[in-house]
Simulated scan of single mutants.
Amino acid sequence: MSYAIIETGGKQLRVEPGRFYDIELLPVEEDGSVSIEKVLFVAHEDDVHIGQPLVEGATVEGTVLRHFRARKVLVYKMKPKKKTRKKRGHRQEVTRLMINSINLNGAVLASAETAEAATAAE
């Protein structure tokens, strides 16, 4: 099993090839490809690469599936005994990203096709 830990949108996320993740909005068209260079950790079978802070030459390739807005988060502020109440809502813009492959120094360590073949073999 191969996975990587990436940083995007100010958050760190553990990603695997062949799966999709909802991340902060990326300025890329739908069905466009994205290459993320901020890779903090790569694990491929027994081989582990730890970045200080980033892994040199590591990239994660992905495809943007769609852009949408996340569920509404309600913010309610109230001061007791003052009759002061504020109710606000917020919906974050989100990009759904399908991870295609994890690359290290130009070589593909894991891709969506190898991940599907590994799960079918089990």
Rank of each mutant, 00 (worst) to 15 (best):
T95W: 09
D46N: 15
A4I: 01
G18A: 09
V73Y: 05
N103D: 14
G18L: 06
G9K: 03
A4S: 03
N105L: 08
R19I: 07
L13V: 14
I23R: 02
I50S: 04
Y21M: 04
A43T: 06
T114V: 12
E7T: 10
A107Q: 15
I23Q: 07
A121F: 05
M1E: 15
N105M: 12
A121Q: 07
I36A: 01
T63Q: 10
I5Y: 00
L26W: 09
E122A: 13
L97S: 03
G18I: 06
R88E: 15
V55Y: 01
R69M: 11
V48W: 02
L25Y: 14
I5R: 01
G51N: 02
E30C: 04
E113D: 12
L74N: 06
L13W: 07
K83D: 11
D22T: 04
S111F: 01
P80D: 09
S35H: 05
R91Y: 03
D47L: 13
N100V: 14
R66Y: 14
E24N: 14
P80T: 12
E29N: 11
S2R: 04
T114Q: 13
H49S: 10
R71S: 11
H49D: 06
R85Q: 11
I50N: 04
V94G: 03
G106V: 03
D31C: 09
S101A: 12
Y76Q: 08
E29I: 08
